[in-house]
């Protein structure tokens, strides 16, 4: 175990990067998810089509491929970002496609009459979505969005493939350097578990708090 204590600094730095990567990507994923889900339920056909195209493209490509495409492929078209922002963009885009589908299924759980009543008092479609439908839809999908958060925590380990020095790359390096894989893996496991469990707990609290009395 002393190997862990000796490398606590490296672990800490990796953990902080993983945390930052997770939070930034998740914030982006929520924003993308909200916009794309709104597009997919909109009465405007081209918006619906664009939303569907986005989801069906992004979510059906492996995250690793998306990372390589963005980090190694896009620079050939003049689009180039450093490793960390690249990872955030790709992870947000990827997780966002799942968030969009989750929110859309939440929208489907909101009774049709809610949107009709919203329109009947003179709210425009965007208003009725923002003020009536989405607030209820989001309450219904807190748990599955928590699942996506946990999946994202673990997916961030792939960012090591494009040179982001996060928890995953720290333990890969330390295993080689120290030749004590069990201890090092144990440390990494604790890091990911802490992040995922905390996230899961926060989502459970949110779910409990915003539940609608029916």
């Amino acid at each position: 175990m002393s190997v862990l204590i000796h490398n606590l600094g490296a672990f800490g730095a990796g953990f902080r990067t993983t945390l930052a990567l997770t939070l930034a990507s998740f914030a982006g994923a929520l924003a993308i998810g909200l916009v794309v889900a709104s597009m997919r339920v909109s009465p405007v056909a081209p918006l619906r089509a664009a939303g569907t195209a986005y989801v069906e493209t992004i979510r059906n490509i492996p995250l690793l491929v998306l990372l390589f495409l963005f980090f190694f492929g896009f620079p050939k078209m003049g689009i180039q970002y450093p490793p960390f922002p690249s990872a955030v963009i790709v992870m947000a885009a990827y997780t966002g496609s799942f968030v969009a589908e989750t929110i859309r299924s939440g929208v489907n759980t909101v009774a049709r009459g809610q949107a009709e009543a919203a329109r009947a008092i003179g709210l425009t479609f965007p208003q009725s979505l923002r003020l009536v439908v989405l607030p209820q839809a989001l309450r219904a999908v807190v748990a599955p969005i928590g699942n996506l958060f946990i999946a994202l925590v673990k997916n961030t380990a792939l960012a090591s493939t494009i040179a982001v020095v996060e928890l995953g790359s720290v333990y890969t390096r330390l295993i080689t350097e120290t030749a004590q894989p069990v201890a090092i893996l144990f440390g990494a496991t604790v890091g990911y578990l802490a992040l995922a469990l905390t996230g899961g707990w926060i989502f459970a609290e949110i779910e409990h708090k915003v539940a609608i009395k029916r």
Binding site: A111, G113, A117, A120, Q136, R139, I212, R214
Partner: peptide, 9 residues
Amino acid sequence: FQSFNLFAH
């Protein structure tokens, strides 16, 4: 409406 449709939230 028949089913009231009050905003539940």
